[in-house]
């Protein structure tokens, strides 16, 4: 009896790939956004922050519905897909990456924003008096100080993408190797009464989630000790 079937291996690899790529894109997009949110003053700042945080509250089916329409042949996703001769971004790995980035954005932006806000103006002012350019200040002062925030954001973004389900079910099309990620594979196994595979995947996810939470707690503790 093969424990680690090709089918399961494929969905695990696909999930890790999706989460890794999404996290990388998320960090690139979230960093300037979090920086701006942490420092901008004005009523619109919190409006933008609320828009970014929407996926925290919205059911994934709301995002799934909008994405299905937006990624489809009559939406912007369809125009984009036409660049390489495809008709739609739904049912593609790229489509899932777009969905994951939207869906996990608040989990990455929030910790980084908090870390930027927590350091206050002082270190940046000191750097400015030492004639560091704003860009240099950002890379050599702000980013290192906000490291725990980046770590938390990256881990949460990765974990949340791994845990994505409703969205993928709605825009994925269940294609092995392209869109059949772990959570959907698990749903499939349960639907078809394949308990053995289902319990393997579910058990693995429990261990993974536990490891994530434990890591987060330890990171937080270390950061708190370093700050003290």
């Amino acid at each position: 009896m093969e424990i680690w079937s090709a089918e399961i291996r494929q969905s695990v690899l696909l999930t890790v790939e999706l989460a890794a790529i999404s996290t990388a894109i998320l960090l690139v997009l979230a960093t300037p956004l979090a920086w701006w949110l942490a420092r901008a003053k004005g009523w619109w700042t919190e409006i933008i922050a609320s828009v970014v945080a929407l996926p925290l509250v919205l059911p994934p089916t709301v995002l799934g519905f909008y994405l299905l329409v937006l990624l489809g042949p009559d939406g912007p996703g369809g125009w984009l897909a036409r660049l390489w001769g495809a008709r739609t971004l739904a049912f593609t790995f790229e489509g899932l990456v777009i969905g994951s980035v939207v869906y996990s954005m608040p989990f990455v932006v929030q910790p980084i924003r908090n870390a930027f806000a927590a350091m206050g103006e002082r270190p940046l002012e000191v750097a400015a008096t030492l004639r560091a350019s704003p860009l240099r200040t950002f890379w050599t002062v702000a980013v290192p100080l906000a490291r725990p925030g980046f770590l938390t954001g990256a881990v949460l973004g990765f974990a949340h993408t791994v845990g994505e389900f409703g969205l993928v079910l709605m825009i994925g099309g269940n294609i092995p190797g392209h869109t059949k990620v772990l959570s959907v594979a698990l749903f499939d196994y349960v639907e078809t009464s394949r308990w053995r595979e289902a319990s393997m995947l579910a058990g693995g996810m429990v261990v993974f989630a536990f490891a994530v939470i434990l890591t987060m707690t330890l990171v937080d503790k270390r950061a708190a000790r370093a700050a003290a």
Partner: peptide
């Protein structure tokens, strides 16, 4: 619905 939304022809 996949056909209805045009995502599959």
């Amino acid at each position: 619905q996949f056909v209805e939304t045009g995502n599959a022809e």
